[in-house]
Nucleic acid binder design. Structure first.
Lengths: 194, 194, 194, 194
DNA sequence: GATGAATGAGCATTCATTCAT
DNA sequence: TATGAATGAATGCTCATTCAT
């Protein structure tokens, strides 16, 4: 029997590729560098991924899956909209703070034209739970009406920008700061009933 | 007297470089392609900019200047905070909608490590007017307290993400939609006094 | 006792290698592809042949042996020179028509510098029977004088070119056509006694 | 004004490429080596030919043109068929002896699948003069009937094989030997009228 | 013996930059 | 200034060969 394909290698490749691609973009991502950082030979990299495009597509799929899993454990409590919303927001915020590279990667490649349409679509579909929750919030008067994509963009856009600024400053925001950010988002979205 | 560097050529170079770099990123930006699209020879490009990095840095500085000029005409009316804030928001929103490439360019290169620190600093400084206006808003109780950079990130992040989604969908948002977006931002930032 | 190298595998390797090398030449011959087409693993191929060069050398030797065997059954009848000559010509012509890959392979590698001198020499030696027959033909006035290698080249060159043109056109020549070709060869070589 | 594309460079590239490709085949032809032997940088080679395939195709076209030109000066004398035939044969034979690489190159690439169909067709067409001459010979009873391609293959095949054997032996054949070869060809083709 | 994962040198091609005109 | 041919280092990917299983 020959050696068996190594799970650890796969993981090392992902780590290396993510780290490197986020630093400099797709074109400057060097397969040789990925291999070196993953501790394998260049040729070995091509056993696992037949091309640079494939590598990046797979990375995208994996990271999106991870993001989806984030919300798996959340129990939607319709009687306590804000609490559930808060839980979602916090999980995503923390995920981005702990994995800024993954956040940047998805942001960078989502509109890049490099990720295959099929992958974009299927990963979007996996986010249905969140989408449904927002739609329910609109119908039941918790959050403002309007195209759902406006709300999603608002959520994403603000969180990503905050995380980017924390990461650039190499700062870990305190609880109060995070609360502040959450409040801006919630106040922006929710409908005040006087 | 030697001929002076040609203003038209400069402009053509900027247009070409911006258009191309936003499509594919710094590394895939090809100097030969910039030259071709600008209607000049490769060698000529190097008379104007001694390197790819220089070209991109200059582009960054120019675009940031344009953004600063956006706000020059605005009269800060401290008695009507929301109106002034609205004017600022609208101008920036419209600028981004009309110049998505410039917005994307700045976003892409701001944290890229390619723009020289000095340029980043000096362009930040030029935004003092806006910064002061936000600081004043905090002090006078119009908008929430907390690090100013949180508010700036919130503003940027949301607007950019909205514009990106409109541009990706090739949609020009109607007045109502824009109003909707403005309201999310304002509600997120301002302090409600019951 | 250890298992013996498998005759079937050897045969499968030869078939695969011949087929592939003739299509694309030595350098594009891929060991992995040979292995795949032969139904074995790449590593296994190296149990049978320690290198690509060895594989090709062995192939050359085998094919030449086959060509020699072609003439084993022929009885040289000195009283009927033309008839014997015809038999030789026909056998070789038919062999080439039925095994164009083998013909092309030998042609391709004979002057390639890849086949070891020793092999070239020993396979040439095995052709002594034919060579002797031609020499006898010269001495006894059946065929034209001059360096024997001229006659051999004439024989080879014409037959190979005919076969190549038939194979390229995917045509099986009829009896009359073959007769035509034989006559050109015979008329070219034999001495007319008026 | 920039430097002007250099005719000498083109010639040097052709020489180098021809010499190298004939030695080892298309796949082992190394662009870097062609450049080195032509005395230019690798990148420069790509200014003249955008790919290895293009280089080889152009080479094929050029060499075929040269072969066609060979026969331009020949005056077809229908009253002296053999003399004209002899002239054609001699010119081609000498060309091959003086340019064995060109001969081998054309032989190697004609059926290789690398040369574009259009080139193959147009170069074939250019040989019409010779073809017509052979056809006339058949009609007027000078040479044997049968598919013209049989005669052409016979001519080519024999000449090429002779030249290959002379070149391999590094021998320049004397007049008598050449006469010998010519006679084999002529006797093979022509119809004896007793 | 048999397997196929792993290796890394090797090669076609690209592109920022230089320089002769 | 302006041009575009020339340069050569850099990079994605291949494939003969090795080696752990």
């Amino acid at each position: 029997m020959a050696r068996v394909k190594d799970k650890n290698k796969l993981h090392a490749i992902h780590e290396a590729a993510l780290h490197l691609v986020v630093k400099t973009g797709f074109t400057s991502l060097k397969m040789a560098e990925v291999a070196r950082e993953a501790g394998i030979a260049t040729g070995t990299l091509y056993i696992y991924y037949p091309s640079k495009e494939d590598l990046v597509n797979m990375l995208y799929r994996n990271i999106k899956s991870e993001m989806v899993e984030l919300f798996d454990a959340i129990v939607i409590d319709e009687n306590n909209y804000k609490l559930t919303f808060r839980e979602i927001w916090m999980r995503y915020f923390r995920f981005c703070m702990e994995n800024p590279d993954k956040m940047l990667f998805v942001e960078q490649f989502h509109y890049s034209g490099i990720i295959e349409d099929e992958i974009i679509k299927s990963t979007n579909k996996a986010m249905a739970k969140i989408e449904d929750f927002l739609a329910y919030g609109q119908q039941s008067g918790w959050i403002v009406k309007g195209g759902l994509h406006l709300q999603k963009a608002f959520l994403h856009g603000a969180i990503h920008e905050w995380v980017k600024s924390f990461v650039a400053k190499r700062v870990k925001p305190g609880e109060e700061t995070v609360e502040n950010c959450f409040n801006m988002t919630w106040n922006g979205l929710h409908v005040a009933h006087l």
